[in-house]
């Protein structure tokens, strides 16, 4: 008779991510993409509406500036921040740059990403006449 009797500990398929804080952070990061996607879809719909004429554009504008529209965009903004910061933080792992015998420090790569983000944001704000 085989004396071996390995014991397999059960893992919940539906609540595994509640067992560790790092899994919760991961799920938050994953869920954030949903809000970014919805925000993008609304923006694309806005572009379509703009092409359909002034009345259609005004309707879209009224919808996004309604209380529900504003609340959604505030929530989406928070998730967009989570999305941006968590992905930027992970970039040096996926983007390993070697120069000669040295690996470019992760801080530099992350810093460059924030620099580009700031420059693009500023450009868009100037274009929009806000800044």
């Amino acid at each position: 008779m085989n004396p071996r009797k390995p014991y397999v500990r059960p893992i919940s398929k539906t609540s595994w991510f509640m067992t560790q804080s790092r899994y919760k952070v991961y799920m938050l990061h994953e869920i954030s993409s949903l809000f970014v996607a919805i925000y993008s879809a609304i923006l694309i719909i806005g572009l379509v509406r703009l092409g359909e004429g002034e009345a259609a554009w005004q309707g879209w504008l009224d919808a996004v500036t309604s209380p529900i529209g504003v609340i959604f965009h505030l929530i989406a903004f928070v998730f967009a921040l989570i999305h941006t910061t968590s992905w930027f933080k992970a970039v040096p792992q996926a983007m390993r740059i070697q120069r000669g015998e040295e690996i470019v420090p992760g801080k530099l790569i992350v810093g460059a990403h924030y620099g580009v983000l700031a420059a693009v944001s500023l450009f868009v704000l100037i274009l929009a006449g806000v800044a």
Binding site: Q20, R22, Y23, E30, A90, Q93
Partner: peptide, 9 residues
């Protein structure tokens, strides 16, 4: 791999 990243931590 969905890049949870826990392995590296």
């Amino acid at each position: 791999c969905s890049f949870v990243g826990a392995c590296s931590q």
